[in-house]
Design a protein around this nucleic acid. Sequence first.
DNA 1: ACACATATATGTAAATATCATATATTAGTT
DNA 2: AACTAATATATGATATTTACATATATGTGT
Lengths: 131, 131
Amino acid sequence: MIFTYMCQSCGCSFRSRDFGTIERFVEPCILLLLSKEPAHGYGLLEGLETHCGEKVDVGDLYRTLRRMERDGWVNSTWERKENQRDRRIYTITEEGRAFLKHAVASLRQTDELIHHLFSGYRKVYPEGKAL
Amino acid sequence: MIFTYMCQSCGCSFRSRDFGTIERFVEPCILLLLSKEPAHGYGLLEGLETHCGEKVDVGDLYRTLRRMERDGWVNSTWERKENQRDRRIYTITEEGRAFLKHAVASLRQTDELIHHLFSGYRKVYPEGKAL
DNA sequence: ACACATATATGTAAATATCATATATTAGTT
DNA sequence: AACTAATATATGATATTTACATATATGTGT
């Protein structure tokens, strides 16, 4: 048995990092936030924490944004203002909106798989209605 | 723009592999199947394809099973029968059931995050009821 | 003898996530 | 003036996870 992780929500311990994370989930979250208004990387942090359920790694965020720009999902321009450090402002593109739409559709399938697991679990482990 | 992937369900294209996959989702699926009855690796393939929504890499499956045994979630014994190749039969352990329970609880949070994204998406892109 | 399905397993590379660190600017404090 | 902290962007190094290919062995049918 190699248990190295202690779960904060239910107190149980298990191997490595938290379970249930969706690969690159931060990307549609970024695109949704940028759909509302352009923003700079640091300014996205708070909204992303809400959407992702935990603090987002800042370094990862910046690297992701550059990658998304390389892939054509966002554009960026430098914003220069008095009494403020230069910020790189990101704007969503049409390709970005297309991917967001796809991601949402794809996550519906993911959602179905999760609920399929839930129903299977309930059948095998009934023990009361609440879980 | 670097689009290298063509989505089979909606026809759109985007970078790298399919979106929406949950890290190590195969593990609770394996544990759920083994909760019903012991099984060998190859015999799990069909059930896992249903639960995971696509074919599971066979090599990955075997490696995952050995890792889960190392972590104490399953046990294995060799089954020897006439007219049949030796099979390694896996059985779920108490630790395995504990992790499955945790995984289900954790996936409920994942589910909430997905639906939070959905509701945010609907607000920004209303366009009709159905999506 | 051959092809094919079953069955288990490993090698290698790519993609992704994590943790640490570097750099620069602004605002407030001692 | 020196310091501390928050803001802001970015990279280096490592670990984890996934994907794809390959190796090996057995049983079944032709």
